[in-house]
Nucleic acid binder design. Structure first.
Lengths: 190, 190, 190, 190
DNA sequence: TATGAATGAGCTTTCATTCAT
DNA sequence: CATGAATGAAAGCTCATTCAT
């Protein structure tokens, strides 16, 4: 089944890009890491850019699934946020390479097509904002601009991830969700 | 005076890199923006990488100056942070191109030499941490891990800057320091 | 029957090569046009070059058949030429794609193996020359160098075909044999 | 002066392309023949295609100059044609490589931009046609379709050139203009 | 010091060909 | 025989850097 190779390429790309950065990674590097020929990469992706796009698209998909899943649970906003943060960080602790790629290569501006990548950040921030808006409507949190709040917390989250993965400091990564939740709690009324 | 050209090159680089990203910017692009010949760039910088290094070094220097200046004033931690945030954002509002470069290209990993750039972030976080440590010693703030706190706020600050500059949303940029200060205040005892 | 596929491939190749040129045609293009898999092409042809060789070989064979047939008829040189021109053009009017390939790709110089293709032109010119030589022996035509004559008329014929197919100008293609015959008649004594 | 290199590249390209054909010629081949680096080629031409375009454009320009010059002389059509043929062939005898490129690569169909090359043929045929039209108006020649006539002679001319250069047969090349003129004369009234 | 043409290593991408199924 | 995924050599092109002027 061809999807097996697509997965191998994705994983190899994540590995190599996390180490050398997107622009210092050659298609040959990815191919060697994936134990495939260069040509094979092009049977699954139209271009080098598309590989990065795919990585982000996949991660966005996963996050949206988590969010949909949690929404279905109909839990409190506070619990919602805690769950999401836990799962978000859990993924990164298990795959720090992926984390590094996601936080570092998000500014990719390869010409005009970087749709998925810019959108990855946008969408997550909007999802966070939606949660705050709803919480605000339910008077669960203090009256603070939900958009600013979302951007603020998203920045803090990614900043902590990046910092922890750059050292690397697995301890900080473990403590981060708890720490962030405590900060968030300050905006909750009860 | 030769330093005039060095400044022109730096400004041109900031301008172009903020628009196209470091790796999509050619030396020729910078030269044209600076209205100089390509060869002239090499009279002031040893390499393309070094130009980016210089931009970050210069910004780091400026921030350290602000910090030194504020430390000399011997003001309260709260006031200190407010002043620093105000000045940090003021620079970026006046020069959004510079802001974009600083927040986007910080992950530059050109082989081994990215000393200055990684350090820019590190140093600022450490400076922030120092402030929290001192404030903690003076019982000005609640008992929270100062390192985590510094990373958290630094991430939030840069996240807001990046978001505001990407849209671009000058309004958010103006409101950000006030908003961040309010968040910080929640952790202050008095 | 396997020859059916060989025919399908030939026709597909003629179609695609006439549109994109030999070097801009990929094996995949031919395969898709033939509604076959790429691998299948290699069951009938050793290489891409060989497909072009085959097209030319087939056309040469057809022309030689026509010539043999006409020779058997034992008609006058003038009639011979007229018949040959009529049949030659008739094929091309019915299959302009084939015509385009034959007149355009004749200069194929893929390294050393282009035997058949160079020979296609050579052989036709020689055939034409033979006719003139014979006519000269029979004092049917004026005393003009038969080789120059053959090259001259062959060039004129192919030039008209190419021009008519490039536009395309089916009217010119129809008038061409008659026009060429009238020019040829000038060299006949009677 | 940079134009010197442009000339060196053109000549090298003519040399190599005439030997290997356009598609079998690599930029490196041209560079080596020109004793320049590959990169230098791109300082003078945007692409490989553009080099071929330039070769044709230059030749067209030369032919148009010859035509303009002869028109200024106000000579008879017969003399006009003779002069033009003589000069056209003279160029090719002096530079057979150029001749081979011009007659062989004229069908270049590199995507959509082959403007100059298609036009080279078109323009020359039209120029020839104009001469016949004028001669017809002056009753210098018999009443024959000038367009068909132009295409016919152009094909014959190029066919002879190609044949003579392919062998190569310098004798045929020398005799060709005289031979062609005699054919043309048969259509002249006096 | 300023210039910009020359350089060539290095990159992405293509595609004819192979071969296991 | 048919298939089409895998292969990797090969090509066009870019661009940081050099250096003669």
């Amino acid at each position: 089944m061809g999807q097996e190779n697509k997965l191998k390429i994705r994983n190899a790309a994540v590995q190599v890009i996390s180490e050398k950065g997107f622009y210092n990674t050659r298609m040959l590097d990815i191919a060697e890491e994936a134990e495939l020929a260069v040509g094979t990469l092009y049977n699954y992706f139209k271009s080098k850019d598309e590989i990065l796009e795919y990585i982000f698209a996949k991660e966005m998909e996963r996050r949206m699934e988590i969010i949909a899943e949690l929404k279905a649970k109909d839990i409190s906003t506070k619990k919602f946020l805690k769950e999401f943060l836990d799962r978000h960080f859990e993924v990164l602790i298990r795959n720090p390479h992926l984390g590094r790629v996601v936080v570092r290569e998000k500014d990719f501006s390869g010409r005009e097509k970087s749709g998925n990548i810019q959108q990855f950040i946008e969408t997550l921030i909007e999802a966070l904002e939606d949660i705050f808006v709803e919480a605000l409507a339910n008077s669960e949190i203090k009256d603070i601009d939900p958009h600013l709040m979302a951007v603020f917390f998203f920045g803090a989250i990614h900043g902590m991830i990046e910092h922890a993965l750059t050292k690397p400091d697995i301890m900080m990564l473990k403590n981060a969700p708890q720490f962030i939740m405590e900060r968030i709690e300050h905006i909750f009324i009860n």
